[in-house]
Design a protein around this nucleic acid. Structure first.
Length: 462
RNA sequence: GGCCCCUUCAUCUAGCGGUCCAGGAUGCAAGGUUUUCAUCCUUGUCACAGGGGUUCGAGUCCCCUAGGGGUCACCA
């Protein structure tokens, strides 16, 4: 039974890096029949926004990650933290520091000038004199002066950090509000975390948090630091490369199961398996199997997975999803054939909606290149004749009826298929490419087919 | 720069000392299917960062070098 959490700071939207660590945490909690909690790290009152929290919850809902209990806001727990600060102060494990921000900056600059590591010098650690007046002190915790801080990371193995790397960091700002590393340790302990799965970028916070755990006598959880997701260029994931809002993937026509499948495989695998349903993830996932190296974001593979999941989504569900993209097929009489055709050819819902509209709606304009390529020689005459053939034919219903008609037409005129296929394609959907012509005509019907041909012929004359 | 972490095809990865002249997937290329495009199928392309050890034997263990990433706040 693992208790895990996702603990974002509400400074922006949820991006795929965050979603992946959330997924890993969620999988581990659900797999072990434990609990998964959502906690908002909003101790810096100046920075957080309620809007950001809403967006994160919304993204969770979209991908189907559920959390146990209410969302925990650290801003609601300041009294609790203050109690612990006082406790450490009373026990002599923390102390007031009267250095101002300016003094601190100056110290840092001097240290850097001497090519030293910037670091608090501990000048108030054992201070017993009269404190300077007019300074609101911060509270610093006493970090060990020597030795090593060692912990066992579930992904990276034993991590050893020298005590000299960690200074007496601030646990309460001069305005009395507690800081991140302090409250995270308290909340993780109080909320009963057994496994803390978080981004690599928190690796250096862990020794600090361990100091808090030890000062307060809390039991340590197991830590897992998952490597970052890099951009396709191997650099830090940037906005233009995928560090966008998870909800943007929804807007672009991605299915949540595709996104989750993509993310779970980024840094984790189970043999040669590529396709994982959530149930399969739950069956096989173990955070101990997460890779220790960073991985690059690969949009092509996400697209491939999305195409796969679209193909395997039932039509009624697709029809519902497509409504987000302005396509309303739920009560359309050609719904099944349309979806059957297009779910095989599209990589995103957005693309699918666009292509289906292309069939359903009379083209407003025609692709310049297609026009040039299709209308050489007798093309216009052929097209006119084909409209005539459509007019005269009986029993045009199924795609096969149109197919037979086309075949006979080509035979009788002794022309290659392209001579009628290309112009007809432009007339029907405005461009080359696209689905089978017999299918298209069967879907839109004889009259609309003829109307589209006439529209194109007319525009050629003008 | 100090410290920490990482390093198998272009990319995601399999591999946990011999079964690897390194497997799967994406991408790319070619061919097939398709009246077009896409899908689909087949085939191909492409890697153990470099150098030292340890060992009968190393992609797998150790060390060094190089490269990459992270981190050094009264942000989280």
């Amino acid at each position: 039974m693992a208790t895990t959490r996702f603990a974002p700071s509400p400074t922006g939207y949820l991006h795929i890096g965050g979603l992946r660590t959330a997924l890993y945490s969620w999988l581990w909690a659900r797999k072990t029949k434990g609990a998964f909690k959502l906690r908002i790290e909003d101790t810096d009152l100046a920075r957080n926004s309620a809007e950001a929290t809403k967006k994160i919850v919304e993204a969770f809902e979209w991908v189907g990650l559920d959390y146990d209990g209410e969302v925990v806001y650290q801003s609601d727990r300041f009294d609790l933290y203050k109690g612990y600060i006082q406790q450490l102060l009373d026990e002599g494990k923390a102390y007031y520091c009267y250095m101002t921000k300016e003094e601190l900056d100056r110290l840092r600059e001097e240290q850097m000038a001497r090519k030293e590591r910037p670091r608090y010098d501990g000048r108030y650690r054992d201070f017993t004199g009269t404190p300077p007046s007019g300074v609101d002190p911060v509270v610093r915790i006493k970090a060990p002066l020597e030795g090593k801080i060692v912990f066992d990371d579930g992904i990276k193995g034993t991590i050893t950090i020298d005590a000299s790397e960690v200074d007496d960091f601030i646990i309460a700002r001069s305005d009395g509000t507690p800081t991140y590393n302090f409250v995270v340790a308290i909340d993780d302990a109080l909320m009963g975390m057994t496994d803390v799965i978080r981004g690599d970028d928190h690796l250096y916070n862990t020794p600090k948090q361990i100091i808090v755990y030890e000062a307060l006598g809390f039991k340590l959880p197991r830590f897992y630091h998952v490597p970052m997701i890099l951009g396709p260029d191997g650099k830090k994931l940037s906005k233009r490369h995928g560090a966008t809002d998870v909800m943007e993937y929804k807007a672009q026509g991605y299915l949540p199961e595709a996104l989750l499948n993509f993310l779970v495989r980024l840094g984790w695998s189970h043999g040669d398996q590529e396709i994982f349903s959530v149930d399969e993830m739950l069956e096989y996932f173990d955070p101990a199997d997460i890779n220790s190296s960073a991985s690059q974001y690969n949009p092509d593979k996400l697209l491939w997975l999305n195409a796969h999941y679209i193909k395997n989504t039932p039509n009624d569900k697709l029809a519902k999803l497509l409504e987000e993209f302005g396509l309303y097929l739920l009560s359309h009489d050609k719904r099944e054939i349309l979806l059957d055709i297009f779910k095989e050819r599209c990589k995103t819902l957005k693309e699918m909606a666009e292509q289906i509209k292309e069939v359903l709606e009379t083209p407003e304009s025609y692709d310049e290149k297609a026009l040039k390529k299709a209308f050489k020689g007798e093309a216009a005459e052929n097209l006119k004749a084909f409209a005539q053939a459509l007019e005269e034919a009986d029993n045009l219903h199924l795609p096969s009826d149109y197919h037979t008609l086309l075949e006979r037409f080509v035979q009788e005129r002794e022309i290659g298929f392209g001579k009628i296929g290309m112009p007809l394609r432009v007339a029907l959907i405005g461009r080359l490419g696209g689905p089978d012509l017999s299918d298209v005509m069967s879907i839109i019907g004889r009259d609309e087919s003829i109307a589209r041909i006439e529209k194109l012929l007319k525009s050629l004359e003008g």
